[in-house]
Design a binder for these strands. Structure first.
Length: 270
DNA sequence: ACAGTAACCTGTTTGC
DNA sequence: TGCAAACAGGTTACTG
């Protein structure tokens, strides 16, 4: 489910509900996520106040007085603000309670993560090696060119590598490559700097537009209030295999690249 | 350092 | 219709 726009949508949604609020209880219904939820999480969070809700890549960072909660939504996770007395549904694994409202973590596939650190979260093992934020000034055509020239993998896999740039998952990689007119299988070191700059521009544009529309809901992504995102209405290629290209009418091709379904236009992308 | 693959898990869709 | 295989938004860890 969640790529950067969905995580950012979640961050903006939950922040006003929990910032400045004090944790009154923590309920772990199932600790078995990608890594186990720490056993002492309740002891760590109890009576602590949320100071900031940040995002790095697809990680949500909930900063408390002391320490930081690091959360990842994995493939199927979402976070909602619900009344504390609302009955828990299947796969509602964790509640962080702030009095009458609580932050509820739901994740059927359990690829998500909930971790705790007392240190600087940006130095955490999972975050320390990550590439630049795509919407930051550090992500430029020159940067991508320097990275691309020493790699030989297909550009789509390159673009989805978190050490190169973070937050670009399968949906937005497909969309960005279409908008930039670059074939997803093209070796990344055989792309001109000019075209890589175009790719950078389109990655930023597509992510910004998706955030404005509250993310993409293909199946089960919901915002903190349970509403879906609307960007799927704007998708040009993802999920449209064998349908006509919206720009030139050629039938879009769908194939697997690096174990991920990839859709592109043989006419527009080279 | 890089490239490729398996693995984590459940739910839904696809194909025989 | 029923059952099994394939596939789904992500990322780490391991192999060569």
């Amino acid at each position: 489910m969640p790529e950067l726009p969905e995580v950012e949508t979640t961050r903006r949604g939950i922040s006003p509900h929990i910032k400045g609020k004090k944790v009154t209880d923590v309920l772990v219904r199932d600790a078995r996520l990608r890594w186990p939820i720490p056993q002492d999480l309740k002891k760590q969070l109890q009576n602590k106040t949320v100071r900031q809700v940040q995002r790095r890549a697809k990680y949500l960072l909930i900063q408390f007085d002391h320490g930081c909660l690091i959360m990842h939504l994995g493939m199927s996770g979402n976070l909602r603000i619900v009344k504390t007395n609302k009955a828990a549904a299947k796969h509602d694994h964790l509640d962080i309670v702030f009095g009458s409202q609580c932050l509820r973590f739901h994740d059927p596939r359990r690829f998500g993560a909930v971790l705790w650190t007392d240190a600087d979260p940006f130095e955490h093992k999972l975050l320390a090696q990550l590439g630049p934020e795509p919407l930051s000034e550090a992500f430029t055509g020159e940067y991508l060119y320097q990275q691309a020239k020493r790699r030989k993998i297909p550009v789509k896999q390159f673009l989805m590598d978190g050490r190169v740039v973070v937050g670009v998952g399968n949906i937005y990689a497909n969309e960005s490559l279409f908008l930039a007119g670059i074939h997803p299988l093209r070796a990344c070191h055989r792309i001109s700097q000019r075209r890589l700059l175009s790719l950078v521009t389109h990655v930023k544009a597509v992510l910004e537009r998706a955030i404005k529309q509250g993310g993409t809901t293909l199946k089960d992504f919901v915002r903190e209030d349970g509403q879906p995102g609307y960007f799927q209405q704007s998708l040009k290629v993802y999920g449209r295999g064998n349908q006509p290209c919206l720009r030139c009418g050629t039938l879009l091709k769908e194939r697997r690249i690096g174990q991920r379904s990839t859709v592109y236009c043989p006419g527009c992308q080279s």
